[in-house]
Amino acid sequence: MRKEVVVDLVQKVVLVFLILYIVLPLLVPLIFSFSTLWMDIVPEGFTVRWYLKIFHRHKYYQGLITSLLVAVSAVAIDVFICVPAAYAINRLRGRAGGLLRSAFKIFPLIFPPIVVGTGFVQAFNRPPLAWSGSLMLAVFAHATLGFPFMFRNVLAAFQTIDERTLSEAAASLGANLWQRFRYVLIPNVIPGILAGSLLVFAISMGEFEVTSMIAGFGWRTMPLLLYRSLIDDIRTASAISGILVATSILAFLGMTLISTRVGAGKLRTKGARE
């Protein structure tokens, strides 16, 4: 009996440590951003001053809007290219399909942000592709970094729904390709699309590496402002970090919610069939 209690206690302590390892670095920016002073071990006071600064100072507010705009656009592009691609590659049997699937898996590993950045700074500086320094280039860069994540999620969704049977059933009822997509396939893979979108959105909001390489003079995203403020304005840095941490956590909660909903939905259809 005694030994079990000890083992149980040790397990709980270990679990707390394992969770703290992740939670502590996430909480630090949040606590810092709501405190008036944190010079010693414990932070002091409560304030929202640093957040107000972001909303009132044009530079920061503009940065927030720019980041949101870039992230939403990158998500839109990735949806547009990945949903058809995942549909097609899921259908391709044999070598071509398998080859493409593993290619998309390896792609982000051998084409990391530093290489994407090096490519982007020199590939788009002369007509007809003179996009250097434009916000559009940042959107394309974020879409490039994000699409493997979108693709993986959407492909997984297509793989779980037995798309061929569904499509054939719909086709036999007279639905054309567009109707099959609109009324049968998209509603079935929407959880995958949403999960991928949240992931790409969160990655784009926090992206610093490539963005800083291709940044123009006319715009700044939140991470670029964070990089500057890490050096000279730690208070603003904490508020920007707080916003980015909140974005990651919210995106993540959204994904968890989607996956539990889908899990529950699957159980229901299974029950109905039996």
Partner: peptide
């Protein structure tokens, strides 16, 4: 999904 700069700040 966490920004590399946020991690730097936290540490």
């Amino acid at each position: 999904t966490l920004s590399s700069l946020v991690v730097a700040f936290a540490f």
